[in-house]
Amino acid sequence: MKGNMTVKKLNRIILLVLGVIAVILPLLITNSYRLYFFSFVGIYVVAASGLDILFGYAGMISFGHIAYYAIGAYVTTLLTSYAGLPVMASILIAAAVAAAAGALVALPCSKLKFQFLALASIAFANFIYQLICNIEFLQPYRGMKVEPLSIFGVNLNSDYRYTYYFILVWVVIALLAKHMIVKSKIGRAFMACRDNTRSADGMGINVRKYKVMAFAISTFYVGFAGACAAHLNELVVCNTYVQANSFNYVIMCIFGGVNTIFGPVIGAVVFQFINEALASATAWRDIIFGGIVMLFIAFLPGGCMSALRGLEEKLAARFSLGKKEAASKGGKKDD
């Protein structure tokens, strides 16, 4: 019981701290690059959260989610540039298309054991990448221009503070949605499938249906992120969608902590900062990055959230110890 209380309290503290920081960030930071940077962090938070739903809660791994990121990006590009749709609607439709693709992939593949599922996701991601590279119309190598992010006709890219707030709103919506899904019957079904598919099946849960659902939801998130990124950068180029970039999302989840609401948030932030720090590392970049991944998995497989949890527990223990002593001495009481 004590543990449960700690987790809830921890979540609330983090929520408060992050929430306040997130809202007042543009007031603290006026450097437009930094706002652009955090806008991208927000995009990655959405993507990583999506993957977390699949991996942390439903127990399925995918190393090919970049394919849905790509689908989201290209669909929205085509819709806004050639069908003249407004950006916001286009992003949502693109995410839906990505979700449909995810569902299609999940239908046959969700029954595979994790290594083979991983391989199938890699194969699909490679296929989508090759497909993009082969469609000349999409100008894969030079890149295709994309309409800037805009809402109700206002160009958000003109000032990255607007972009930041726009993405912040969507991050909040995404995290809220994830929280609701996780707490609901669907979320419990996901976790049941993750923990033991046989018994889940035995309890009458339609494992197949929920696995496909988890996939579709996660790819919706990732597709949404991809679409936003396309409008933010005003450019889609095939290099962004190589299969290897899928590992980034998994790594973000691991860095932050799977199976939590704020894990992907912290993970995305940490990941982006590491990326930036390595930007001038030239030849050392790969070694350092690979080393960081391995160290994290060795010492902190639960990610930063687990470390924070440990810290919180320690503090709570000390705090309660102090309380006991104070009570026994009849001293001051904290509330």
Partner: peptide, 19 residues
């Protein structure tokens, strides 16, 4: 700023340098 063979990172690089 390393663009890692990705034009989108070049966008980030440009933003960084401008910043």
């Amino acid at each position: 700023y390393d663009t890692t063979n990705n034009p989108e990172t070049a966008v980030t690089a440009a933003q960084y340098l401008i910043g």
